[in-house]
Write a protein that binds this DNA or RNA. Sequence first.
DNA 1: TATTGTTATACTCTATAACTATA
DNA 2: TATAGTTATAGAGTATAACAATA
Lengths: 179, 179
Amino acid sequence: MKPRTDPILDTTPAGRLDEGLMGPIVGYQLAQAAVTTNQVFAAAALSADVDLRQVEFTILALVDANPDLLATTLARALAVTPPNITMWLDRLEARGLVERVRSATDRRAQPLRTTPAGAATVARLAQRVAEAEQAALGGLSPGERAMLLELLHKVAHCRSRTARSRRVQPAAGPAAGTA
Amino acid sequence: MKPRTDPILDTTPAGRLDEGLMGPIVGYQLAQAAVTTNQVFAAAALSADVDLRQVEFTILALVDANPDLLATTLARALAVTPPNITMWLDRLEARGLVERVRSATDRRAQPLRTTPAGAATVARLAQRVAEAEQAALGGLSPGERAMLLELLHKVAHCRSRTARSRRVQPAAGPAAGTA
DNA sequence: TATTGTTATACTCTATAACTATA
DNA sequence: TATAGTTATAGAGTATAACAATA
């Protein structure tokens, strides 16, 4: 594997390392990119004075966009195990951001809803994160951003139905290991 | 936020959920895409009969491509804390995959090297992962894959120097993550 | 029997602080 | 004083197994 010419294309962000065999591995590049977006999220949440983890933010947003969503569906969508979804929902409910309603047709199910406070929080944070990403990802043109989102979507849809989650590597696919 | 027409573009992979406010968030899409690549990696490692986490795989590959790499540099590159790098290196060294050499010029430093076994293992696994990704990501043309890698690289390079790692959301950026 | 959701629990990974030794 | 690397440790997050209630 001989060195290429463009340093920005075969080098890790920090340290100017040769990526070697990791160069063409999508999982690795995904993890490295996630280091950036994780920073952006953390900064945005801080500036918006919202104390939510990325998972919590995501859960809140999906519940908000899909009223009466069930925990099982959510767990599958996020590749999180049922016990863990229960935990996250417990926390969000304790903070008054989501509600577990009781279904009239199926007494096992507990349709989820965001509370007004929950809806307001996601909206505000989503706005901030979107702005922060746009600012931080100044290197990408609007067209490139759109292209990236579309390609990521395609990758996401290649997921097998039997999706079990596994952490992304820490930047290297932190363990490059999550999204 | 009104529903769009193309279901593959505003829906989560599992469950056909509306992504709502998460749609344009790169961190979220990154995490969702990582669910796919994490599956692919796990399957590839299994089929190659290699027991390595994504982080370990990445560390091994970077050390292999950058002989005499220092742990500190590696930690920055992967956005992993020094104590954690020490731990991963301990494991890899215990398995005879990497070596900690002693520097003649700076007796604090311990330049890293892959052992022949380590080099062989990364090479084999990298090959498998690359093949597995190509097979799994059949939905993307070679050109799209290349474009994706380049865009991810751009995002990665937008990382701020003071990079502290943070887990990617579990699929939603698991926590979405996290991405 | 299958599904929704939960509890209990052990384990893995992460981060912080503090320390050694070199420079 | 600053850097390379380590130890010790507490905490966060995760997964597994087993269970309750309902379908």
